[in-house]
């Protein structure tokens, strides 16, 4: 980093700190009722207390588990289905339009159907999260397969490669930027749906924690939960962006 960059970065942290200070001041002067807005000091104490008593850690792990299991299921199914549909022109003509029609459907609307099918269980949450997180990956994979350089397919034909080899060796690597972008989008969807399912089904997780805190008007605990959810969102998105850069490094060379 060059020196001015570091100064700007420091300035940027200073602005954030000043805003937190403003929040503290608002809370201290009771400009907004403390029932709705605890100061950052209270939220921080609640966060530490939650972790030391162990409750919050269990809730955090619960949410992470919901999110990651659902996301992994969605990744497998989404990419496999996307590859199956995207690899064949006939399938793309017949199936892809139906999927495009379904795209604007708010995925949370399938929650009632999932509840009717599975009841208020972990299975329901897994189904909803996996189903919702599958769409971005499915559509991205189909798109990635559709725009593979046609000459690569011609090469595969002259080499007499099998259909599976074509998918694994040519189409998947070529579609990987689209697929990874879809996986990044899905991560956000998975987090949101995890929180919604926890709120609705009372499953162990941060969604349940924030709802209970709100019901009991424990606003400091509530803010601690929301801050933690923000951190989960930030860390998972950053990790995914890092993985994306690493996995796509090979594309930078030789182009």
């Amino acid at each position: 980093m060059r020196r001015p960059d570091i100064l700007w970065r420091l300035g940027s942290f200073a602005v954030a700190a000043a805003l937190v200070g403003l929040w503290q001041l608002t809370a201290d002067l009771k400009l907004v009722s403390p029932v709705f807005l605890p100061g950052p000091d209270k939220a921080w104490t609640a966060l530490i207390r939650g972790f030391s008593s162990g409750d919050l850690m269990a809730k955090l792990l619960g949410t992470l588990a919901h999110m990651l299991y659902g996301w992994l299921c969605a990744s497998f199914v989404g990419i496999a289905l996307g590859a199956a549909i995207g690899a064949s022109k006939t399938m793309r003509d017949y199936v892809a339009p139906s999927l495009e029609w379904l795209r604007p459907l708010p995925v949370s609307a399938i929650i009632p159907i999932a509840i009717a099918l599975f009841g208020l269980t972990q299975g329901m949450a897994l189904f909803v999260i996996a189903f919702g997180a599958m769409w971005p990956m499915l559509l991205a994979t189909i798109h990635g397969f559709a725009v593979v350089e046609p000459r690569l397919y011609e090469v595969a034909r002259t080499l007499h490669m099998s259909r599976l080899a074509v998918i694994v060796k040519i189409a998947l690597p070529s579609a990987s930027p689209d697929i990874l972008a879809g996986m990044r989008l899905s991560l956000t969807v998975a987090l949101i749906l995890s929180v919604v399912c926890e709120i609705l089904a009372g499953l162990d997780g941060l969604g349940h924690w924030v709802l209970l805190s709100a019901r009991a008007f424990r606003s400091a605990d509530l803010f601690a939960g929301v801050i933690l959810l923000g951190i989960v969102g930030y860390v998972t998105a950053t990790a995914m962006a890092f993985a994306e850069r690493r996995l796509l490094r090979w594309r930078g060379v030789g182009h």
């Binding site: 940027s12 954030a16 987090l191 709120i199 924030v210 606003s219 509530l222 929301v226 923000g230 930030y234």
Partner: peptide, 17 residues
């Protein structure tokens, strides 16, 4: 820094607030 700190909060998490 401020934007990157607030943006990742899932909107649904604000529901109880």
């Amino acid at each position: 820094v401020t934007i990157e700190a607030i943006r990742p909060i899932p909107s649904i998490a604000l529901l109880p607030i």
